[in-house]
């Protein structure tokens, strides 16, 4: 008995030791080291950085570009989950429940749409970014501007007009995210017993009340998870901005985000200490958001 227990412990330990060690060495320890580096003046090449206490944090309080980046992240934090979830819920509803017929089911061709919606998710972020650079081109070869110019309009500088660029970034992020959440919500919908919808339909509920009275409340858990995921994506967005926008977060800093500023300070200005300080601040923003949103959205769970 005791021997058995011991063997089982050994067995589990043997399996877990490697991943836990890797996790500690490659995930936890760099986090801890980043906290230390953020209090040094390390410029990336020296072997002996000097400790300067909280100097970097004092400096970042006055860094206009960084705070501009923070406002962009905040904007994304509100808009990205909102738009994505609303669109994804709408599509998932149509694909699964919203069909007009007598039986509960999606609209016509829903199987095909489901695949199409998922396409963007399959593409790597860098591919999406380069793709949209071409879509947004400001001349006749841009996919959006070509028809606009053919109709006699002036081309829109989707990425070159500082007033528009942020919205272009948001649009691409929504485009890329929606497909995944359609699938997520579809899975959620599939776990809701069919008879609930049928009962409601028999009672004479239309599509609208079906959605607000049945679908949404029963999907609330999934929506909550989606919200946290999307919020974290909004806070640590990097590749789309860095690859797609002009001047990595431009023009005129109009699309820069926290992660881009961390990268810029580290690998372009060679201020690794300062960049780590930005990273530490970003870490607290992200953790703070996760805790806050999980607290706020806590709600009664419905068991089927």
């Amino acid at each position: 008995m005791l021997f058995n227990r011991y063997r089982r412990g050994l067995f589990i330990t043997a399996f877990l030791a490697a991943p836990v060690t890797l996790y500690l060495v490659y995930v936890i320890s760099p986090y801890i080291q980043a906290f230390y580096i953020s209090m040094t003046d390390w410029r990336g090449v020296s072997a002996t950085p000097a400790f300067i206490g909280l100097e970097n944090f004092r400096r970042l309080l006055e860094d206009g570009t960084f705070w501009k980046a923070v406002t962009h992240n905040a904007g994304l934090l509100v808009l990205l989950p909102l738009i994505t979830i609303v669109l994804a819920l709408f599509f998932a509803f149509l694909l699964n429940v919203g069909g007009g017929g007598r039986a509960v089911g999606g609209i016509r061709g829903s199987k095909f749409y489901r695949v199409v919606f998922f396409f963007p998710q399959v593409l790597a972020v860098a591919v999406v970014a380069v793709l949209f650079q071409q879509v947004f081109r400001p001349d006749g070869s841009g996919m959006l501007n070509a028809p606009l110019m053919a109709l006699g309009g002036k081309p829109i500088g989707f990425l070159s007009d500082p007033g528009v660029a942020f919205w272009s970034v948001l649009g691409v992020m929504v485009w890329q995210a929606v497909g995944f959440y359609v699938v997520l919500f579809s899975a959620g919908l599939a776990s809701i017993p069919r008879d609930m919808f049928e009962a409601a339909q028999i009672d004479g509920a239309g599509r609208l009340s079906l959605f607000f009275r049945i679908t949404l409340p029963l999907l609330w858990d999934t929506v909550q998870v989606a919200w946290v995921y999307l919020g974290i994506i909004a806070l640590d967005v990097f590749a789309i901005v860095w690859v797609m926008t002009d001047q990595h977060g431009g023009p005129d800093w109009s699309t820069t985000v926290m992660a881009a500023e961390v990268y810029r300070n580290a690998f372009q200005y060679f201020r690794f200490g300062y960049a780590s300080a930005l990273g530490v601040v970003m870490f607290f923003f992200t953790v703070g958001f996760a805790i806050l949103s999980l607290r706020l959205t806590r709600r009664e769970r419905i068991e089927f």
Binding site: R5, G9, L10, T13, S29, I37
Partner: peptide, 26 residues
């Protein structure tokens, strides 16, 4: 019980040395 045991064994894994040689300059 096994979880506790696991933690105990995990503590024995000599990670300290590996931790020192990472991102920070030496």
């Amino acid at each position: 019980f096994t979880r506790r045991e696991l933690l105990r064994s995990a503590a024995l894994v000599p990670v300290a040395g590996a931790l020192a040689a990472c991102a920070t300059p030496a």
